[in-house]
Design a protein around this nucleic acid. Sequence first.
DNA 1: TAGATTGTTAATCGATTAACAATC
DNA 2: TAGATTGTTAATCGATTAACAATC
Lengths: 244, 244
Amino acid sequence: MNRSNSSENPYRNDSSDRCERPEVSPAVIRRLPRYFRYLRELIRRGKKRVSSREFANMMHITASQIRQDLNCFGGFGQQGYGYNVDYLYEKICELLGVEKGLNAVIIGAGDLGRALVRSSIFEKRGVNILAMFDVKPELVGQTFGNVKIRDMKELADFCIRMPVDIAVLTLPKEAAEEVSKQLTEQGVTGIWNFTGKDIEHDATRIAVENVHLGDSLMYLNYRVCQLSEQNVLGNQNSRKDGKG
Amino acid sequence: MNRSNSSENPYRNDSSDRCERPEVSPAVIRRLPRYFRYLRELIRRGKKRVSSREFANMMHITASQIRQDLNCFGGFGQQGYGYNVDYLYEKICELLGVEKGLNAVIIGAGDLGRALVRSSIFEKRGVNILAMFDVKPELVGQTFGNVKIRDMKELADFCIRMPVDIAVLTLPKEAAEEVSKQLTEQGVTGIWNFTGKDIEHDATRIAVENVHLGDSLMYLNYRVCQLSEQNVLGNQNSRKDGKG
DNA sequence: TAGATTGTTAATCGATTAACAATC
DNA sequence: TAGATTGTTAATCGATTAACAATC
């Protein structure tokens, strides 16, 4: 909180101006949602305060990391006391923009698009789904999870009329690049891309989050193979040890 | 390839024995599926060879990283030539265990479970889905994507009878911990966890891949907010600049 | 006040990049 | 052979952890 001296030199970088989201490494920001989750868990349990040590044990990380991470955004704790759970949760929500209530559309009303729209994933994080879009005429007009499926042809017009922040891409990968180019033009600033193909884009204009479920599965596959190899080697070693 | 001297001292760590999957950092292994994807793309385009430089440009990473990564597993390239695309792809597949044909079950036949089973995600990576399981009687017996939904009560017995390597958890988070404990007992060595709650486990016995779609969405949300702040600040600055 | 625990700096660790000798 | 490009070592960079003074 001791920021008074920063005002002494007006020519220094004016971080005092923006109270939120200073330049922080992606590694830290990627951990914020995890803090969010565990804070919810603490709230659920009725905990009112938590020390970095206690929180770290719960999350299987170091207390240092928690303090270091949180201090990127300001002093959320109190010496000798720890962190107030409700206050910290509030601050993390603020940082992540949960209360901003961003608006999103889902493009592609296939299995995955429908699964997402009917889940609580958006609602829990303050994201509103305004509409779904699909090219298939037989889907247009149907409703899933209170969201209407519109014709893909209406997309451009819709984005101009409505304040769409985020587009969720659950359409065939072949269309991803083209659609996201259009969306960028129409002022959409976030793409949640499930197509499995990285989208080339200008990061200063639009944020793209590529979700690669396949990569995740393959990493798991690797480790499962590794475990079974270890077991084989382990058994061999036991036999060897049995001899010596 | 110059490993001849390692055989001089038989008491040194016997890495020469295991031709595959030496101890390599998770950061590197996490990148393998990405190489896999881009190699498929090269194959699709009919490319027969690729240099680390060319591949790096395509992937937006450094050539150094590619060479460094691949050399964790042995020399897959050739000086003065580059990498043979088909050969490299084959090797990456081998490392990731694509040809192992691991067997999986999906636990929870809700929207997400059905979306996954009807997608090509498993097939593309050599993972076989043996069955789905659900507690709801009205779902039991139904078929999605050629996979039958069985009663959750049959799970334990099924895992004993069949060689189940991986369990995909698409059930309510409350059940995740308990079910995964059971699965570990029944010899399952991989869990692909979509419940959104980290699963506590013994990493020497079972590999758990926690998929946190919500975290991904929140990271996107953060960056979208950041972009809009930048635009606001940018506009302010323009005005200021216009004055000076 | 004494004890506890943060905020923050310094030390360590690991991952990425650069450079270049080896070699195809 | 000369040119190209890998494999590999050394340098750099960034992220994590440890330590401790500040302070509640």
